[in-house]
C-alpha cells in the first residue's frame, strides 16, 4: 500500500493507505480525529469540511493520497487547550447548533469565510457563502448570527493553527 504523509493540526503524520482512502476516512479512522463528520458522502452537505493548505474543502471528495505533503486543519486543531477558538465560542454563545452534526463543517467553513473575506461579514454574504453547508436542525438563523459574531471576534487576532 502506498504511504501518505501530511501535517494534521501541526503534527506530522504518516500511514500506509489503500489508494481509495478518502481524506475524511484517513482523518477519522487512521488519525482517530472523529470531529470531522460524514453527513452525505455525496459532496453536498459540508459536514466533512476541513482546511487543506489553508482552504476549506470537502474531505469526503478528496483522496488522502492527493494531500501528500499538505497542511491539514480539522475542528480539533482550533482550540488552544481549553480556550475555544473565537468562532467555536461564538457558536456556543449564540446557540448556533442543535444536534451538532453539521457544526464542525460549519465552523471550518466560517473560518475560511473570514480568511477570504475579512471579519466584517454581512448577513447576506454569510448566507450566500454557506451554500455548501447544510443544517437539518437550526434553520440557519443562529448559525448566521454566530458566524457574524465569531468573524468580528476574529478581527485583528492571528488566525489559529494555520
Amino acid at each position: 500500500m502506498p504511504r501518505v504523509s501530511m501535517r494534521v493540526n501541526g503534527a506530522q503524520v504518516s500511514a500506509s493507505v489503500e489508494p481509495r482512502t478518502l481524506l475524511v476516512q484517513f482523518l477519522r479512522e487512521h488519525q482517530r480525529l472523529t470531529g470531522t463528520h460524514v453527513g452525505c458522502d455525496t459532496s453536498q452537505c459540508g459536514a466533512c469540511v476541513v482546511h487543506v493548505n489553508g482552504k476549506a474543502i470537502k474531505s469526503c471528495t478528496t483522496l488522502a493520497l492527493s494531500c501528500e505533503g499538505a497542511e491539514v486543519t480539522t475542528i480539533e486543531g482550533l482550540a488552544a487547550g481549553h480556550d475555544l477558538h473565537p468562532m467555536q465560542a461564538a457558536f456556543r454563545a449564540h446557540h448556533g447548533l442543535q444536534c451538532g452534526f453539521c457544526t464542525p463543517g460549519m465552523i471550518m467553513a466560517a473560518i475560511d469565510m473570514v480568511n477570504r473575506l475579512g471579519p466584517d461579514l454581512s448577513e447576506e454574504t454569510i448566507r450566500h457563502e454557506l451554500e455548501g453547508n447544510i443544517c437539518r436542525c437550526t434553520g440557519y438563523h443562529n448559525i448566521v448570527k454566530a458566524i457574524r459574531a465569531g468573524a468580528a471576534a476574529m478581527g485583528g487576532m492571528p488566525l489559529a493553527a494555520e
Binding site: 476549506a56 474543502i57 478528496t62 467553513a109 475560511d112 477570504r116 455548501g132
Partner: peptide
C-alpha cells in the same frame, strides 16, 4: 460554480 468548497477543488 457550486459552493466555496467545490470551487477550492
Amino acid at each position: 460554480i457550486g459552493d466555496p468548497h467545490v470551487r477550492h477543488r
